[in-house]
Amino acid sequence: MGKMPGVEKALYSRRGCSMKKMLVPFAFLLPYLVVYLTFTLYPTAYSVVLSFMKFKGGNLSFVGLKNFQFLFSDPVFFKAIANTFIILLIQVPIQTLLAVVLANFLNKKLLRCKGLLRMIIFMPVLIDTVSYSIVFRLFFNTENGMINNFLRSLGMEGPDWLNVGFLSKAVIMIAMTWRWTGYNTVIILGGLQNIPMELYEAAAIDGASTGKQFWNITIPGIKPVLLFSVILSVTGTLQLFTEPYLLTYGGPVNETLTIVQYLYKVGFKTFNFGAASAGSYVLAIMIGILTFLQLKVTKED
């Protein structure tokens, strides 16, 4: 080596080498990239095309903005958006608040059986969405449901849960809160455990009350995690499908019909794949805007 510098230069010019260096990571990524491109990127991009198309008998034809026109002239679409946002605006704050409270409780130094309690609180999320939706449907049955049977035993006549608009929304919210609070609690608990204990000790020595400690140490400390949890919940709620699909079937009279459920109906019940694709982009844009706003609002420092 070193005796034929000219040859060496020609064989391994800097450019050639860096090219190869550049290719190496792609070589390792290739298997994943192939899967990602075929099953994620391609369908996502293709549905953009579909949203401007009409699909009939296996043939596609360009229809411009007709699919969007259809969506924005359909009162049911707006009803679905309204339903989803009502659920979002009530359920997510309640759930987040509960999760913060529970996480603080689980983070208490003197608490016994921490592992067991954490497991119990986290457990609902391990239960299959389909099963729990059906169980909640049975709970809230007017005639034979557990809830109304319990109320009856107290001498009260239970309400007609699944036939009253706001009650059926409430049932969905109760079910979602039951399932997802534990999940968010664990996320927030992770944030709490990253706050150094010294801060609290120093604050206590300086005479700060528990409330002050909470607002000035805990909340800023868990802010990134809290934001993450809220964004997850908001996105999840905007994409809500299984619970209303199985628990209330979107009823009564579309009172619990969510955006995704509406799109499912448009796509697979009425075979209007173009409009369904268009709708999914309307939803994607809404999620994008909301996430951007949340990041913006919380980015004060």
């Binding site: 059906i134 449907r137 049975l138 049955n141 007017t142 005639e143």
Partner: peptide, 8 residues
């Protein structure tokens, strides 16, 4: 009323 007709 059978809200979930088949099961109920």
């Amino acid at each position: 009323d059978l809200p979930s007709e088949w099961d109920d």
